[in-house]
Amino acid sequence: MYQFSLYAICQYFGLLPAAIGVTLELSAIALVASTALALPIAKARMSGWRIAALTARAYVELFRNIPLLVLLYVYYFGLAEAGLHLSNFWAAVLALITNAAAYASEIIRAGYSTIPLGQREAARSLGLRGWHVEAFVVLPQVVRVIIPPFANHCIGVLIGSSIAAVIGVGDLSDWMLATGSESFRYMESFLVAALIYVALCQAVAVMMAALDRRNRTAAG
């Protein structure tokens, strides 16, 4: 008869910090790199240059509509066959980056659309030029607007990073797969991993909400 027992898997708890570390590392690298990539994509999509706008749109549609897992297989198995050997860690990061950039660029684009044209005109009439208008007037306002949707996006990337387990990167989901199949304590390892994911997501949500509040008060 089966009896639920966390004690049965407590010998694997020592591996948790490293596994959580890998999950956070994957998510953090993917978030930073994808956001950096998303800004020019969003800019291109809003630009009057048709080819750039079309290319950006194609990128977004393509990477939003392919499952992350399949993307990972393309990078890890497909590219290896074409002669480009990525390590499992970087294949997972690349899948997360290319996918997250599509979503982030849409968030950024929506953010830009809320900034009235008058802000640019006002900045120019104050004597700001070229990129100064963007960097000191428009972008800070965009950042402020996109914090709430970006919080959800961060959680999405964190959850998405679990694909890495499929190719054995050693993240939190991988800990669950390994612990489950070694101890046959599938339910226990699932619940422990799930609880940690929920806690991590809540932590991100709380941090982003605090950032949002601070920004709102700063804006007066």
Binding site: Y2, F4, I155, I159, G160, S161, S162, I163, A165, V166, S173, M176, L177, G180, F184, R185, Y186, M187, F190, L191, A193, A194, Y197, V198, L200, C201, Q202
Partner: peptide, 25 residues
């Protein structure tokens, strides 16, 4: 809502298949 939004689908499939099978028979 918050719980099931925060658990990666990979875990849900794992839990539903292996977890439930072993835990409930």
């Amino acid at each position: 809502t918050e719980t099931f939004r925060s658990i990666p689908p990979l875990l849900l499939f794992f839990g539903a298949f292996y977890g439930l099978t072993y835990a409930t028979g």
